[in-house]
Design a protein around this nucleic acid. Structure first.
Length: 597
RNA sequence: GUCCCCGUAGCUCAGCCGGAUAGAGCACAAGAUUCCUAAUCUUGGGGCCGUGAGUUCGAAUCUCGCCGGGGACACCA
């Protein structure tokens, strides 16, 4: 088995081996707490371990004594230049520079697969994201969920999970009925009805919704397909049962085509599209409710009114309830409405049961923060339908405010009430949208500054990282004048001796590259794809710094015309840097650029 | 009233499973370019990590209370 390309994981194994020699009956839970982390302060060396401190109690020895024994052992390890005890019991490690340099051939051979991990050990994860109602164009909120979900799925896959990307089409319920009415209105307009919008709205149960212009083309296409057959001869409203299924299906199909087009523009491709309607029609919802009933998790009851804020029309009412409180929820949750039809929650239970039955170990839903109150009941439901075998997690995405010149941007002509994803993509482009959306924790509100996303300065992280990659490529292009192309290919550079890389700025960069696998694992475990963006930003900073060192001191430039061997070693470092940037951008779904214009 | 998220430099935010002297960018001040793209870099000032307790060798990080901001709270999706 080849050594892990995560040098921190490898050193941790070494430390554990040493620790077991000192504390023979080391408990597993203590061993699990032993960590080898990058040193925060470079004067402490390259890495530090807490091994002596966390094991002190179990060993019934003072940390300093364990640390001293660890130091003695670790100083005999060839890769370690120096081990020393410090502070309350840290053991600091300074590695032989060669140990870091030795990673570069592995990086160059792996390409963007560098950083791939087996930490997920093939655990099956379903990441459900976007899942917008097909009632209109995707807007800015969907966009964040789409980017976060997609990057999270990529990240988990890189960390060794077996990932499925899924979209849940909410094509059942009252909203799509309202959508059908709205499309029908545009249809009547297309065939020249004499009704006014106000007159039409009078006839719609609940009133006309979805008044944005985006349904006009759908109405026109309905008119092309069906002529006047869906209306009364005078252009009036025909009996709903004569047209509503037709119009609804037609409109959902049209809206989903738009959604897919928007997602394609964003570079998101999901593996599975699940339909709420299809699920309901196969009887899966009733089956799920029956199953819960057999487990004794369902009863007929009356809920207390919510405290503090009672709805105006609240009245006590017997309902079919799920015992979600048995699984930690605050109240039991209704599965059927007063008219006997299923609630959205009931459908969602069936849907998640379906995912459980497809064999996933972990279900992750990427949701808007307004669904925060939904998480506990879904956790309860998944626990119930999987008999505790499947884990449910939610990643909540907070609201995004689009800003321009310090002012919020609100309206879209087409959609009427919100900024569409498509507008945003047209204005700043896919890469800037994706990267910028990942420069905040998902559960923190963010301001998306259009000016900044387009700015070509350091305060635009997209640009800054892209520029670093372009500079790497630029150096390699320039080197082509000095060497034949095959000699500066990644594979060839991977074979070179690298002992000449000794400058501090070079070693800083190399250490950063060495931290990539560790970061991938940590980010995947925390479900925090935004960490990738910050890592790449720091990596870019290291590279730009090294580049500028060459401006102060000509001997530090990458290309040294009279010293081909040193030049090639430096090219290896540049190429490895480019590889890691590409590896990170791939997780984020951002394309690297070869040169800036 | 209950639940969830947030509170770190003037501003926008990082801070990985608790670790040593809390970090970036912007803004502000001063500097670096006959050069692999200065679209960059260097240096400097700037902090009661909202607040009070607790847990312990050690807390920005974990627990509880309080203050402040956002969100969600039967029969919507």
């Amino acid at each position: 088995m080849k050594a892990s390309s995560d040098i921190y994981a490898r050193m941790r194994e070494t430390v554990l081996t040493a620790l077991r020699g000192i504390v023979p009956d080391l408990p597993d839970d203590i061993a699990a707490r032993v960590d080898v982390t990058p040193a925060r302060d470079p004067t402490h060396g390259d890495m530090a371990t807490n091994a002596a401190m966390v094991s002190a109690k179990a060993a019934r020895q003072p940390p300093a004594k364990i640390a001293a024994a660890l130091v003695a052992f670790l100083n005999e390890v060839p890769e370690i230049a120096e081990a020393s005890a410090a502070g309350p019991g840290f053991v600091n490690l300074r590695l032989d520079a060669g140990a870091f340099r030795a990673l570069m051939p592995a990086i160059l051979r792996s390409g963007i697969a560098y950083g791939d991990s087996t930490a997920g050990s093939g655990v099956r994860v379903n990441v459900e994201y976007v899942s917008a109602n097909p009632t209109g164009p995707m807007h800015i909120g969907h966009c964040r969920g789409a980017v976060v979900g997609d990057a999270l799925a990529n990240l988990l896959a890189k960390a060794g999970f077996d990932v499925t990307k899924e979209y849940y089409i909410n094509d059942a319920g009252a909203q799509v009925t309202a959508l059908a009415w709205a499309a029908y209105w545009r249809y009547l307009q297309a065939i020249g009805t004499s009704l006014t919008e106000a007159e039409f709205s009078e006839e719609v149960p609940g009133g006309l919704q979805y008044r944005g212009e985006y349904l006009i083309p759908v109405g026109q296409r309905l008119a092309e397909h069906y002529g006047t057959a869906l209306a009364l001869p005078d252009g009036g409203i025909a009996a709903p049962e004569l047209w509503i299924d037709t119009v609804r299906d037609f409109t959902i199909t049209a809206m989903m085509a738009e959604v897919r087009a928007d997602l394609r523009q964003l570079g998101v491709e999901q593996d599975v599209f699940s339909s709420e309607r299809a699920l309901a029609e196969t009887g899966a919802v009733d089956a799920a409710i029956d199953w819960l009933g057999q487990q004794g998790l369902i009863y007929e009851g009356v809920l207390e009114p919510p405290k503090g804020k009672t709805p105006d029309d609240w009245e006590p009412r017997p309902q079919t309830l799920f015992r979600s409180t048995q699984f930690g929820d605050d109240v039991d949750r209704p599965l059927r409405k007063s008219d006997g039809s299923n609630t959205y929650f009931a459908n969602d239970i069936a849907y998640h049961a379906d995912k459980v039955n497809r064999g996933y170990d972990i279900l992750i839903d990427v949701l808007g923060a307004d669904h925060g109150g939904y998480v506990k009941r879904m956790q309860a439901a998944v626990q119930a339908v999987s008999a505790g075998r499947t884990k449910f997690e939610a990643v909540l995405c907070q609201i995004v405010h689009i800003m321009r010149g310090g002012q919020p941007v609100r309206m879209s002509k087409r959609a009427g009430t919100y900024v569409t994803m498509s507008d945003l993509l047209d204005e700043v482009g896919r890469d800037a949208v994706r990267f910028t959306m990942l420069t905040r924790k998902a559960d923190a509100q963010m301001e998306f500054d259009l000016d900044q996303a387009l700015a070509q300065t350091r305060d635009n992280p997209v640009f800054y990282v892209q520029y670093a990659h372009a500079r790497c490529r630029s150096v390699l292009r320039a080197a082509a004048e000095m060497f034949p192309p095959e000699q500066v290919a990644d594979a060839a550079l991977a074979e070179l001796p690298l002992d000449s890389l000794v400058a501090e700025a070079e070693l800083t960069l190399i250490r950063r590259l060495a931290g990539w696998p560790r970061l991938v694992e940590a980010a995947a475990l925390a479900r925090e794809p935004h960490r990738i963006a910050f890592f790449l930003y720091d990596l870019a900073a290291d590279f730009h710094m090294l580049w500028n060192r060459g401006k102060d001191d000509a001997t530090l430039r990458f290309i040294q015309k009279d010293r081909p061997d040193e030049t090639l070693a430096r090219l290896a470092l540049v190429a490895a840097t480019a590889v890691v940037i590409r590896s990170g951008l791939a997780v984020m779904g951002v394309d690297p650029v070869e040169e800036m214009r």
